[in-house]
Design a binder for these strands. Sequence first.
DNA 1: CGTGTAAGGAATTCTGACACG
DNA 2: CGTGTAAGGAATTCTGACACG
Lengths: 100, 100
Amino acid sequence: MSYKEKKVLPIGAVSELTGLSLRKIRYYEERGLLLPERSNGGTRKYSFNDVEKLMDIANHIEDGMQTFEIKKMQKKKKQKEKVRDEMIRGQLNAAFRMSK
Amino acid sequence: MSYKEKKVLPIGAVSELTGLSLRKIRYYEERGLLLPERSNGGTRKYSFNDVEKLMDIANHIEDGMQTFEIKKMQKKKKQKEKVRDEMIRGQLNAAFRMSK
DNA sequence: CGTGTAAGGAATTCTGACACG
DNA sequence: CGTGTAAGGAATTCTGACACG
C-alpha cells in the first residue's frame, strides 16, 4: 500500500490540510462519507486519500449538495469502478483463452 | 510538494510505522539526524520521508554505527547530491550555449 | 440539515531528569 | 552513548448536547 492510503494523520492535520473545521470533518464521517481508522485510544487516523475525498466533499457542499446526495454519488462511482474492473477482467480472460 | 514530504504525522504514528520507541525517535532528533516540524502547541510533525530516514538510521544503529557517524554520512550524501546537481546544471548550460 | 460552541474527560505528546552501562 | 522509565504538565482529541435555522 502506498503512502496515500496509510491511515496515519490526526484530525488536526487533516483540518489544516483541507481548511475544514474539526466539526465538519467529524460530521461528514457521521454521515458515512468517510471512514477513518481509530487508534487504540479512540483517536481518528486519516489517510491523504481521505484528505482528497474531504476536499471533494467540501466542493459539493459548497455547491449546495446534501450529504446523502454525496453519499449516493460515491456509491455510483464505486459501482462504475466495479463494472469497469469486471470488464477488464473479462477481456483478459477472453484473450487468455484465445491464446491457447 | 508531494505527500511524502508533508510534515503531518504525529510521533505515535511514526513509532508504529518504524517500530522505534518514542524515546529513540526523539533522541535521533536531538542528535540532529532528523528535523521534524512543530505544531503551534509544540507537538512534533513528521513526513513519510522522515519515516524512511528513521528506518535507515535504525539499520545503521543496529550495525553498531554511532549517531555522529550517521550524521557525517548524511552530510556526505548531501554533498554528493549537490555536486551531481551542479554537474547536471553545467551540462545543461553548455548544451544550451552550443545550441545557439 | 449543517455547523458552531462550551463541557468534562481521556489519549497523546512534551520536557528534564535519573538510571544503567 | 543509546535507551528505558516515572513525573507533571500541556496540547490534542473524543463524545453528547444545546443552539440556530
